Amino acid sequence: MHTEEKTINRMLGLDQLNQNDPMYKRWTKYCLQWYIRKANRNRIGYYFLSIITVLFPLLNAAFINMDERYLPEFMKADISEVHMFFTVLSILTSLASSMLALFNVKEKWNIYRSAAEYLKMQYVEFEESGTEKTGQEIHEYIKKINDHMQLIHAKWQSVAFQEEKQLSQK
């Protein structure tokens, strides 16, 4: 479990859940963990691909313009190897920028992150009274969360549809 998940679980009192806890708490914890995990994966993917798209062209430009006596030994050996190195850097840069555009990892990261924030906010509001919850209150809480999750799913589907459309056009 990631540090962020542990912190959120502890903050919301969800880290000591067991099967005797009310269903809405177990369900909220599961949903929060799922959205946080998805947000983290997309955040890491976004930063990784973004770093590649920024760093590799800089490396390419630096090596191309470097005086031969400052080149690393492996680049002095054979001109075909040098060309291959620059070709690989260019291919990886192109692949990373295409993946950023195609898979919309930044948008997905924002979608999942906002869903997790909404769930946290709703859970805290629901639990802040500290009184025993009635069946109607629990039902309304679950309905509100489910309605929001359906909106999030619709946003995700529109992003996924854009991906499919882009893939079919290529």
Score class of each variant (00 low, 15 high):
M1D: 07
H2G: 02
T3F: 09
E5D: 04
E5A: 11
T7M: 06
T7N: 05
I8K: 02
I8C: 02
R10C: 01
R10H: 03
M11W: 03
M11S: 03
M11P: 00
L12M: 08
L12C: 07
G13L: 03
L14Y: 04
L14E: 04
D15P: 02
D15S: 06
L17Y: 11
L17F: 10
Y24F: 10
K25Y: 06
K25I: 04
R26Q: 12
R26K: 14
W27A: 00
K29N: 12
K29P: 01
C31L: 06
L32C: 05
L32N: 04
Q33L: 12
R37T: 09
R37N: 08
R37H: 09
N40Y: 04
N40A: 05
R43M: 07
I44H: 10
F48T: 12
F48I: 04
F48G: 02
S50E: 04
I51T: 06
I51P: 00
I52A: 11
V54E: 07
P57I: 10
L59C: 11
N60W: 09
A61L: 10
A61E: 01
A61K: 02
F63V: 10
I64V: 14
I64E: 12
N65H: 04
N65E: 03
D67L: 11
E68F: 08
E68S: 13
R69N: 15
L71E: 09
L71Q: 13
L71C: 04
F74R: 09
M75E: 08
A77R: 09
E81K: 15
E81Y: 15
V82T: 15
F86G: 15
T87E: 14
V88S: 10
L89H: 12
S90A: 15
I91F: 14
L92E: 07
T93I: 08
T93W: 11
S94W: 11
L95I: 12
L95R: 03
S97C: 13
S97M: 14
S98C: 12
M99K: 10
M99I: 15
L100A: 07
A101L: 13
L102V: 06
F103K: 13
N104I: 03
V105A: 05
V105Q: 11
K108D: 08
W109G: 05
N110V: 08
N110I: 09
I111T: 07
R113W: 05
R113M: 07
R113G: 01
A116K: 06
A116T: 08
Y118K: 10
L119Q: 02
L119C: 05
M121S: 12
Y123D: 01
F126C: 00
S129P: 00
S129N: 00
E132R: 14
K133T: 07
G135K: 11
G135Q: 11
G135V: 06
E137Q: 10
E137R: 00
E137F: 00
I145H: 00
N146Y: 14
N146C: 11
D147G: 11
H148A: 09
H148N: 13
Q150P: 08
L151V: 09
L151P: 02
I152Q: 07
A154K: 13
K155V: 01
V159Q: 06
A160R: 14
F161Y: 08
F161N: 12
E163C: 13
Q166G: 10
S168V: 09
K170V: 04
K170G: 08
K170F: 05
